[in-house]
Structures are given as structure tokens and as C-alpha cells.
Amino acid sequence: MANGQQRAGENLTAFRAWAQSKSDVDFREYVYRGQLKRSEIFAECGFGRSALAQNPAIRAELEELEAALRKRGVLPAAGGGSDAVDNKPAIRDGQAKQRRQESQRLNSLEQENASLRAELGKAKSMLERCKLMAAFLDETGRMPR
């Protein structure tokens, strides 16, 4: 079992990998009340909300990520003054996550289907070869070299 420092490093690595795998469009799905929704992030990263409180590196990187997203216009500006009323909140596509999961599943099924087709082709060629051997044995009574 990993100690606390190792676990913190693993959690930080998981968070970094998650953040790098997302585009601005993906981040728009996580916007909630002017910031990224922590519960969904941590669920996808595979650790609990307590990691944010106990791991200052994750907290700092999350704040940097949100600041970068604000600069790019993905997140609304912090503060919530009169500017926040004028800006419309980003519309979240509730079905995007499901479509992405279905797309990933479809890709894996297509790969599995292609590998099974290749395996079936090999099996058919082996069967044909065995049929030829059996026919030769029936005709001659000898095994070919």
C-alpha cells in the first residue's frame, strides 16, 4: 500500500493527465457557478474531494488551469460584478459525455471486430489445409511430408 506522499504524487499525475486530455470544448461541460465542477473532475481522476484540501499541488494546478481557462474565455471572469450579469453562462451539453463514451465503446468494438475477422480468416485457412490433408490421407493412405 502506498504512503501519503506516494498517493499524493499519483493523484497529481492523474489530475495532470486528465487536464491535458481535455480541450476547451470539453472544459465547457464542467463549468458550474463560474468554476470547474470539482466533483466531476475528481470522479474522473479517481480520487476524492479531500485530495484538493490535502494536496496543495493539485489545488495550485487547478487554480492555474481555471485562470488559463478564464483568459481563453472558457470560464467567466471571477468576481461576479455587473459584468457577470451581462455574460451568458456557457450552455452545457448534457449528452456530450454519453456520446463520447458511446464513441469510445464503438471504436473498441470495431477494433475487436477487426481482430476477430482476422482470427476467423486464419482459422478458415487452417481448416482448408486440414481438409486437403484429410482428402490426401483418404486417397493414398499415407501422410505427406
Rank of each mutant, 00 (worst) to 15 (best):
Q95A: 15
K22V: 01
Q35E: 13
I58W: 01
R100G: 06
E139Y: 05
D86A: 15
A2C: 07
L52E: 01
A53N: 09
W18S: 00
V31P: 01
D93G: 10
R38H: 10
R38F: 10
S21H: 07
S82G: 11
L62S: 02
I58N: 02
A51Y: 00
Q95E: 15
G80R: 13
A67F: 07
Q6P: 02
C45Y: 00
G46Y: 04
Q6N: 08
N87R: 13
R72I: 07
K97V: 06
R38L: 14
G9A: 14
A14N: 06
Y32I: 03
A53Q: 07
S82L: 15
I58T: 02
R72V: 06
E119Y: 03
K122I: 07
C130E: 08
L62K: 04
N87L: 10
S82C: 11
Q54P: 01
A51G: 05
N55A: 06
G81E: 11
N107L: 13
L12Q: 08
N87F: 08
N107S: 13
Q111N: 10
Y30N: 00
F47S: 03
A77Y: 08
R33Y: 15
N3A: 10
N11D: 13
Y30S: 02
R49W: 09
A8F: 03
R38C: 10
R70P: 05
E139L: 09
G4Q: 13
I91M: 12
D138C: 03
A135I: 10
G48L: 10
R16C: 11
V85E: 12
Q35F: 03
Q5V: 11
L75A: 01
D83E: 13
L65S: 03
M143N: 09
Q35W: 00
G79T: 05
M143E: 12
R59A: 15
A96K: 11
R16Y: 03
